[in-house]
Design a protein around this nucleic acid. Structure first.
Lengths: 104, 104
DNA sequence: CAATATACTTACCAAAAGGGAAGCACTATC
DNA sequence: GATAGTGCTTCCCTTTTGGTAAGTATATTG
């Protein structure tokens, strides 16, 4: 994948899901494709650089697809791949845990 | 928790589960309490500093308990709290995904 | 009496990640 | 003709993270 060595399957998954923005982007795409600017609006604290950098990484990892509509002004859509979509069960559990934890 | 602001429950959970060692330690404790040296042996690439630093963080976050047996040489056991234990469903999904992904 | 084991901490350094601000290409709109 | 909107990239800098090596205290072992 990127030369890194993973200690176990959990470690591998964490490399895709951990990091400041990777997981949040996957989660933001759960409802279907979104444009760059929509993601930016949704992930309030992200900046252009981080968003495009992280999206590129997710594309390389095979989690997200990128569709460039070759128009001016540019229109590009991002969507989850099948592998990406299968990550969603993880985030559903995370949402449940986080919700419960912040109430405790 | 630590002054950080979380954007949503998933973000909160990622702050507990992401990071180089946090998740792996929680996962390593799934079978019951372990001593410092056992964790060190199991998480091959971790060093003393990272392990004790991360364990301290997990204790502060209420994910792990620390029991010091006040003996010489020292014996200290770490175990999951109830909140920590509830994270395990997340890791089970991660293991499944990681296993599947690395076969693809 | 030297070595070993345990669970740490400290000082120091290197690498990586993250972020701000600006710029770019091009069109449409005012 | 200036301005705005889009999806980026680049430069530069700060912060965070990770890591190495060494040290600490004390009892047991050889």
């Amino acid at each position: 994948m990127n030369g890194a060595i993973y200690y176990c399957p959990v470690d591998l998954t964490l490399s895709v899901v951990g990091g400041r923005w990777q997981g949040l982007i996957v989660w933001a795409l759960r409802g279907g494709p979104k444009r760059f600017s929509e993601l930016k609006r949704e992930l309030v604290a992200v900046n252009d650089k981080m968003l495009s950098q992280t999206l590129k990484l997710l594309v390389e990892q095979g989690i997200v697809t990128r569709t460039d509509f070759q128009s001016v002004p540019p229109k590009v859509e991002y969507n989850l791949t099948e592998n990406g979509r299968q990550l969603l069960v993880i985030f559903e559990k995370m949402e449940a845990w986080g919700t419960h934890y912040s109430e405790a």
